[in-house]
Design a protein around this nucleic acid. Structure first.
Lengths: 200, 200
DNA sequence: TCCACTAGTTAATGAGCGTTAACGCAACTC
DNA sequence: GAGTTGCGTTAACGCTCATTAACTAGTGGA
């Protein structure tokens, strides 16, 4: 547990820079020499830390999915109030992630197909569990939603929350907390509107 | 104008298949031989129709952005009721596009960086105009939104609407019209919630 | 009938890039 | 102080892939 605040290890440096570069120019658009240069070593030196370029992407994507799922489960376990507060907690967690790790969010649904079958299956499974976790909570807050509708709504809200990379880079927007609040309100509004049946 | 219902020309075939393949595996992940094979000719034969692989992507992305902007402007011009109805019309148009041309929607924000500077600038400009068109209408319907907030909200709603590629491929969802209605309601709900000021 | 043009073909070229080989060198251990 | 191990380096290999060259068959006027 002492590693938490230690200087980042080489592996972590590499992963961070690789994530940034992959997000900027795509997995195939980035060369190993570039990744190496970004951490001050050159090209093949990376192979002391990773089996290959694919392995970096795999570790990144599995890590993201796992982190999201773990965070979601923790929030479910720690939930005190009712489902309402829990949903707010999930939204808040997802927004924090989207705002703090934009490159990872970008990677998350862009480069999944570049993985080996086994890794891709694992990532898909983690993603599915995360979605199902949300679906349950959403249906508790909005019982009028059918399960397929709730699942669609969750995917769509993820699309909304994950739009942060498209928001102006520096700060034409109301600042971090303002953006987080705006996204939060919009997510709740979207779920609420999903619930009203159109025929009634 | 007779070309509308004619058999698709070779160029159009190629563009359609290229869009599908680029969306599935990324620009760099697809070879020209594959694109050729998808339309029944082989590899270098494509060069009778396009200057190169880059040119295909450029034409696709410029086409998408242009179509969106043109459609949006047409709706603004044809608007009869107030801003409310116009906003609904814009949302409807965007949803139609997202549902009918999923591969293009995917490409739209994934592969922009692979373009030559001039093309990228053009696409960005078209996108920006499309966003601004929405921002104006949104602010008319929700006057309490500041301009930056409205712009963020528009981007986020685009994220929501463009999430269609992530919705289950065949039809675990309520069918096309059901999905369209769900997305529409969520978009309106998101905008509405963006408008309420948190402090009040 | 000949010419020109369109739309293909296969073979060759050349660049880029992931990966491996071979080697160097501090730091730590016994 | 000799050996091992961790972490780099540069050079070379081999493959993929976009692009070009060279060539061919059909088609539609003049």
């Amino acid at each position: 547990m002492a590693t938490r605040t230690d200087a980042p290890t080489r592996r972590e440096q590499i992963l961070r820079e690789a994530a940034r570069l992959f997000a900027e120019r795509g997995f195939h658009g980035v060369g190993v020499d570039e990744i190496g240069a970004a951490v001050g070593i050159s090209g093949p030196g990376l192979y002391r830390h990773f089996a290959g370029k694919d392995a970096m992407l795999a570790e990144l994507l599995v890590g993201i999915s796992g982190q999201l799922l773990t965070g979601g489960r923790r929030r479910v376990a720690e939930a005190e109030g009712g489902a309402e507060g829990l949903l707010d907690s999930l939204i808040e967690g997802h927004i924090d992630f989207a705002l703090d790790d934009r490159p990872l969010i970008t990677l998350h649904d862009r480069e999944l197909d570049r993985l080996r079958d086994s890794d891709r299956k694992l990532v898909r499974q983690l993603q599915r569990q995360y979605v199902e976790l949300w679906v349950e909570v959403v249906r508790e807050v909005y019982p009028e939603l059918t399960e397929p509708a709730a699942r669609s709504a969750v995917h769509s809200v993820f699309g909304l929350l994950n739009s942060t990379p498209h928001l102006g880079r520096p700060g034409a927007l109301p600042g971090r907390t303002g953006t987080a609040e705006l996204l939060h309100r919009m997510a709740r509004g979207a779920f609420g509107a999903a619930g009203v049946t159109p025929g009634a």
